[in-house]
Design a protein around this nucleic acid. Structure first.
Lengths: 165, 165
DNA sequence: TGTGATTACTTCATGCGTGAGGATTCATAA
DNA sequence: TTATGAATCCTCACGCATGAAGTAATCACA
């Protein structure tokens, strides 16, 4: 075995992959209680925080391609959590807005988020540090790779020192 | 809008999710050149580093359920990169081993890994720090959640100060 | 006015990760 | 020997992310 051989535990990508899987797995059963999957929860987060948004705006916010969002919104719409409205001024655009039912799920989601945050055993400062390191990495990778669909998304703002599961 | 409202950019989970997606996207076209997807690359990493392993051992190493590994190995086998051998002593067990072709892909993978590592714009110390933070998080989440299939996997060793894309 | 490019969204095929369920094999002990 | 339980792997259905391709509406501009 050569010395310059790749090692799994040296890979940042694997650390990220495993950590993301672990956190998502922690969310799964808790979000299932309020009828959400994890990516659906991310869309709800955008709507809870920002209010009604177009499909493209949601995609850019989550650093995903639009065709990843379409079927998620389909399911949220079927579940009665959001509405799709075509903009009369520009009929290409579709605006996604929360229904009252969708709005009402916020507290249950906040409980799930709090529980997962506690499971990480990280304090607020550690959470904030890790978060900002990761968002900075995301911003660099975004401009480097130049993925057509998401390259022009705005950089992540420096988040304040609160929350974070 | 209430003050205790969930905010997307406060969520560690989203930072992880976005960072993992970004890094995986950076790998995708480079791994495609040698005919691998990203999860297939992870399996190859295990085999390059550890040598022949059972299907269950690979799953535990990658913190995944076995049924996630089966179809990956199917594709690697069809591509002629690995072989499946049933253990004659315990016929439940299937050992996965690299073929010469599979072995020969290491250098191309190392090149992809190096390029992605450079794209992160992190130096070795930063890479190592982030990696160990994330692996520590993984270990805590693993024991907390107690996912049946992966709970008893060995803890990640402290990785040395080399490499890491 | 009309032509071509662009934008916003959708559809489809492919590969992945999860949970539920099943088949085979092995270990243990009544 | 047979029954019980556990271990190992596979199959299937579902939801998600990507790339390629398509549709419809809008914009730029000659």
């Amino acid at each position: 075995m050569r010395a310059d051989r790749l090692k799994l535990d040296d890979q940042l990508c694997f650390a990220l992959y495993a950590a993301t899987n672990a956190v998502t797995r922690a969310y799964r059963p808790r979000l299932a209680e309020i009828g959400l999957t994890y990516p659906q929860y991310l869309i709800m987060l955008v709507l809870w925080q920002d209010g009604p948004r177009t499909l493209g705006a949601i995609a850019r916010r989550l650093c995903l391609a639009q065709n990843a969002i379409t079927p998620l919104v389909d399911r949220l719409e079927k579940a009665g959590l959001v509405t799709r409205t075509r903009d009369p001024a520009d009929r290409r655009v579709i605006t996604i807005a929360l229904t009252e039912t969708g709005e009402s799920l916020h507290d249950g989601a906040a409980r799930a988020q709090h529980e997962v945050k506690c499971e990480t055993l990280l304090d607020e400062a550690e959470l904030a540090a890790l978060r900002s390191t990761l968002f900075a990495l995301v911003d660099r990778m975004k401009t480097e790779t130049g993925h057509a669909d998401i390259a022009h998304a705005p950089a992540h703002p420096a988040p304040d020192l609160a929350d974070g599961g």
